[in-house]
């Protein structure tokens, strides 16, 4: 089996970071994160009712093109390990309780990042009996990243802005 793995490596090695803007973003991340957070920001993602478009782009952040962990950002399974709660979707009434509880389970300091147009104000689902609204209807939002869905670059840029903002606020020393 081992031989099978070694004999036929995949035709192409995983791609190097090619796009200049990704590289540039990475540099920014390194600067701010090194300075303020000791290069670690743990993110807990909650889908509060999205169509799953946002989740696909969040998942793309972990692919070899974007490789989120290079920047000290990583997704964690438990809210107890998280610094950032990333929330997608219009918040459905059926998810309000679960979203609140996830946020409550996170230690301080913590930030909330709402992603996608629906997370701002409910988007095209606003006004339905089943939708509470955007994330702001339930939690205080520190940053909103728009897009339907926001693409991975927009997500990276937004997270970078958050790190900057938190540092300015003096919430993180």
């Amino acid at each position: 089996m081992l031989e099978g793995l070694l004999r036929r490596p995949l035709t192409e090695s995983a791609p190097k970071v090619a796009d200049e803007d990704i590289a540039q973003l990475g540099k920014l991340f390194e600067d701010t994160l090194y300075r303020h957070l000791g290069r670690s920001l743990s993110i807990r993602m909650v889908d509060a009712g999205s169509c799953n478009g946002c989740e696909m782009e969040v998942n793309a952040l972990s692919n070899p093109y974007y490789d989120l962990e290079r920047f000290g950002l990583h997704f964690v399974a438990s809210p107890r390990h998280a610094d950032v709660l990333m929330v997608s979707g219009p918040v459905t009434r059926n998810m309000v309780e679960a979203l609140k509880r996830t946020h409550d389970a996170m230690p301080e300091p913590k930030w909330v990042v709402a992603i996608g147009d629906c997370a701002r104000d409910g988007g095209c689902f606003a006004g339905s009996y089943a939708v509470a609204g955007g994330v702001e209807a339930v939690l205080k939002v520190d940053l909103h990243i728009s897009g339907c869905p926001p693409n991975p670059i927009q997500l990276l840029q937004g997270l970078q802005a958050l790190v900057h903002q938190s540092a300015m606020d003096g919430e993180v020393a």
Partner: peptide, 22 residues
């Protein structure tokens, strides 16, 4: 049912363009 957004109700009496978006 956690992600139920009431899409059917938003479709009701909506123009076709809005329906397509939803």
């Amino acid at each position: 049912g956690y992600t139920h957004k009431g899409t059917d109700s938003l479709m009701t009496n909506a123009p076709v363009e809005r329906g397509a978006k939803l």
